[in-house]
Amino acid sequence: MKTNLTPIISALTRQRGVRGSLLVDETDGVIIDATLHVGMKGPAFAALAASLYRKARLSADAAGLGGVTFLRLRATEGHVCAAGKNEMVLVIVADARANIGLIRMEMLKALERLVI
């Protein structure tokens, strides 16, 4: 189902190496909107990514480092990137050849455009 957020989410998926992008509720890890490649386990991914972002946000705050603006998890076979706003988390999963610098910039721009 398309929502008014879909074009913003979909645009991220067109970046090289991006397998999927999701907008997730940070509190309960439920998908608000998503564009995923075939075979991606959306709900599980959303829950884990939201949980990771939430943990990072709370930890950084407790450590006196302020709010989290961007998070990147690098693994041997890909990347997870997340950026949050108003208890929503924009998440992408990308494979190892993705241009993370470009994706980061596009995610931060997209986050500015997201209004619910």
Binding site: A56, A60, G66, V68, T69, F70, L71, R74, A75
Partner: peptide, 8 residues
């Protein structure tokens, strides 16, 4: 292999 967190 790494986790990067950008904060304020």
């Amino acid at each position: 292999s790494s986790l990067t967190v950008e904060t304020d």
